[in-house]
Nucleic acid binder design. Structure first.
Lengths: 116, 116
DNA sequence: CGTTCATATGAATGACTGTTCATATTATAT
DNA sequence: ATATAATATGAACAGTCATTCATATGAACG
């Protein structure tokens, strides 16, 4: 193997916080599932209760609940109770921003592809 | 189950393209792994050859190669050959942007936490 | 050509994760 | 209190995926 000591020393001098790396990957991981993205996208349109989400996405109530739990644990959604039903919505504008930026990125990639 | 027909009809009238949803989740999924984030973060500092990345991150050459393949397939990195060694770098500014935004988001979350 | 170095690839494995099924919780209404 | 509706939870299963090991490619140099 050839020598890298100079580069490596430079790199390590301002290496990112490992904790932040994990948090960053963890955040993206949550966005990395189609079901969760669908849910978030739906909630970006309107507040919804669990069974409406399930009905809208054509999926099991239990599956929706499980995913909402993941989203809540990561503070991407919040909820409020109204009688028996619980309404979910996006936690803050950050979430909306990430979705939007990602969506634009994907759209631009599609355009790049079309140019070729 | 209570009635949602009004809401559902409204939602479905401007539902997002399923293909885009999958692409979006797929993109985030790639960013959802600590190893890949570390690699991308490293490459955002400097172009690097495979074995330098491996040495820097303390991981197997083969593992690095496998992950670089994933990153390349998703057009997040590009490479150039120079003799026997192959140098990798970020594919475009988009990648840098996503990392930066995510990093800021994570940092802000940490601050929010500190306030409580 | 054959050897060596840098990288890539394929198969195997172990860990993780999304879904389903069954069941539990919580709140309303009769 | 009991029944019912909305949601949550736990266990189990199936599929996915990152890593490792062994091996293959591909380039340079004697």
């Amino acid at each position: 193997m050839h020598d890298h000591s100079a580069l490596l020393e430079k790199m390590r001098s301002h290496a990112p916080d490992e904790e932040r790396i994990l948090a960053l990957a963890g955040l993206f991981k949550v966005f990395g599932d189609p079901t969760r993205v669908r849910i978030l996208y739906a909630l970006s349109e309107s507040e919804m209760c669990v069974c409406a989400i399930g009905e809208y996405l054509g999926m099991d109530q239990s599956a929706v609940s499980h995913q909402l739990k993941v989203l809540k644990q990561n503070r991407l959604v919040k909820n409020r109770r109204e009688g028996k039903t619980i309404y979910y919505s996006l936690a803050d504008r950050h979430v909306q921003g990430i979705i939007t930026q990602g969506y634009e990125h994907v759209t631009e990639d599609a355009e790049d592809e079309a140019v070729k």
